[in-house]
């Protein structure tokens, strides 16, 4: 069965994209979950759509438009909510809509039909070109290197930002760098599940991994494996049923998330007498 599916080059590329993006997704998703910055990540992802529009308007690879755009969004949202007296959700909401608006305007300005823009919103892993695979791999390596170098600092600001500041760390700079890594991860994930659904794949594997992990590296490893599992299952199911791949991946992940929590509730209710 698998041999038959992966005889196609586009399926091999899709599989590689799924595996490569799982690396960034599991590692950065872990920080998103433990630091509870899922909504910020959603904001960065949607702002990135502005970058897709700008890239399309300029006629370059949209990924090249998205990278600077999402990095700028990460820094702006982070600074606005940390330094200016703006409520965090207001800052996020503003950029969320601004980015989408810029994207829509740019696409409208360019004459002609924009066929594959839909795939940036909802993902289309089956059309990932080889050049994007290289770009995803490069971003993976960059994310891995930074997380390895700054593992103790990132752990400290995730667990106890005040203690990190007392210990002499530049917490705002580290936080902004963390948001930038989230932005890069969004770029990586965009091809797989799309801007709209990126937040689910960023949080679900890490959230399930947290239930059974005692350390951040352990949680990251489990999240990477889960993310790869969801992507491959979703890809396979979408091929069998002939439905959209990105959405199927999200459905598989969401279903497993509910299953994991149902299992936990069941265990709690059987282990604590008097609670049912």
């Amino acid at each position: 069965m698998f041999q038959e599916i992966f005889a196609f080059e586009f399926m091999r590329n899709a599989l590689l994209a799924a595996l490569l993006s799982s690396v960034a997704c599991g590692i950065i998703g872990t920080y998103v979950v433990v630091k509870k910055i899922g909504f910020i990540s959603g904001g960065i992802a949607h702002t990135a759509f502005g970058g897709v529009g700008v890239g399309y308007y300029l006629g370059i690879n949209p990924l090249l438009g998205v990278i600077p755009f999402s990095l700028a969004a990460a820094v702006a949202i982070g600074l606005l909510s940390k330094k200016a007296k703006v409520a965090e959700d207001t800052a996020i909401g503003t950029f969320w809509a601004l980015g989408m608006a810029v994207g829509v305007i740019c696409i409208g300005l360019k004459p002609g039909y924009a066929p594959d823009l839909f795939s940036y919103l909802f993902g289309n892993i089956l059309t990932v070109p080889t050049v994007d695979l290289w770009m995803i791999m490069l971003l993976d390596l960059l994310i891995l290197a930074i997380v390895w170098l700054l593992s103790k600092e990132f752990l400290a600001i995730s667990f106890d930002e005040e203690y990190a500041a007392v210990s002499g760390l530049k917490t705002t700079a580290l936080y902004l760098l963390m948001l930038c890594l989230i932005a890069l991860t969004v770029v990586v994930m965009m091809r797989v599940v799309g801007i709209v659904m990126v937040i689910a794949l960023l949080t679900i594997p890490a959230a399930i991994a947290r239930m059974v992990s005692r350390s951040l590296p352990g949680m990251m490893l489990r999240a990477v494996l889960l993310s790869a599992f969801f992507s491959i299952c979703g890809l396979w199911l979408s091929f069998l049923l002939d439905v959209a791949s990105g959405a199927t991946i999200i459905l598989v992940a969401g279903f497993c998330f509910l299953l994991a929590h149902a299992w936990r509730l069941f265990r709690l209710s059987t282990s604590v007498p008097g609670l049912s």
Binding site: D160, R214, S215
Partner: peptide
């Protein structure tokens, strides 16, 4: 003030 669910030993 801590998140008791944080995966840390």
């Amino acid at each position: 003030f801590f998140d008791r669910e944080f995966p840390i030993s």
